[in-house]
Amino acid sequence: MKKVIVLLLLAVTGYYLVISFMDLGKYGPVVETGVKDFYLEKTVSELHVANTITSIIVNFRGFDTLGEVTVLFLAATALGGILYKRRHDVGERSVLFPSSSIVKSGSKLLFPAIILLGAYVFIHGHLSPGGGFQGGAIIATGFLLMLLAYDNFSVSHNVLSFIESFAGIFFVLFGLAGMMMGGTFLENFMPVGKLNDLFSGGIIPIIYILVGFKVAAELTGLIYTVLHEKEN
C-alpha cells in the first residue's frame, strides 16, 4: 500500500515536471530583458571585478549571501546542540582508530598545501573561479584529513567560535557601513582599483575573505563535533 502511494506521488510529480520542462523552450530564449546586461556591464565598468559571479554573489546579491551564511551557521548550531550531550570532552578521544604511519606522514605533508589552496581560492575570489564558500570548504577538508589521520588532533572550539562570530559581525558591519556611506546594504564604498589587480573590487575581496573564514570555521567545527561523538 505504501509503495503504491509512493509510486503514485512520484508519477504525479514526474508528470508535472515533464509538462513544465516542455514549456521551457517554447517562447524562445527565456532571458531577454531584465538585469543580466546590467550585471555584466556594471561588473566591469563600475566595480572593476574580473569574476562576474563573485560580483553578483557578494555585491548585487550580497544580502542573499548573508542569508546563506546564516543558514549554514544555524545548521552547524543545530548539529552541535543535538550532539552536545553525547560528545566527549574536547580532544579526549576520536571515534576512529589510529591510522597507519603512511597516512599520518602523508596528511602532514598535504595539510599545509590544502590550507594554502583554500586561502588562495577565497583571496582570489574576485579574479578567478571560487570564493568564500569554496575556499572555506577546501580548508575544512584539510582539517578533516588531519582529524582522520591523527586521533589526538584537536581544534579549539573557542578559537573556532571566535573566528566565526568575528567574521559574521564584520560581514554585517561592512554591510551597514555601505548603508551609512552610500545608501544600500553592502553598497561598495571603497576605491575599486584596477581590473585584474589583487586589490580591486572595493569591499568584495574583504567580504569574501570573511565568508571564507566563517565557512571554514563552521565546517571544521561541524566535522570535529561529528568525529568526537561518544560511542555508547
Binding site: I53, V95, L96, V121, P129, G130, G131, F133, Q134, A137, I138, A140, T141, L144, L148, L219, I223, V226, L227, E229, E231
Partner: peptide, 25 residues
Amino acid sequence: PDVALTEAAIGVALTTIIFIITIRN
C-alpha cells in the same frame, strides 16, 4: 567552475567522509 569547486569539496570529500564515519559507527 565555481559550482564545480563547491561540488568537488563538499560532495566528494565532506559528504562521503561523513557517510563513511556513520557506517563505521
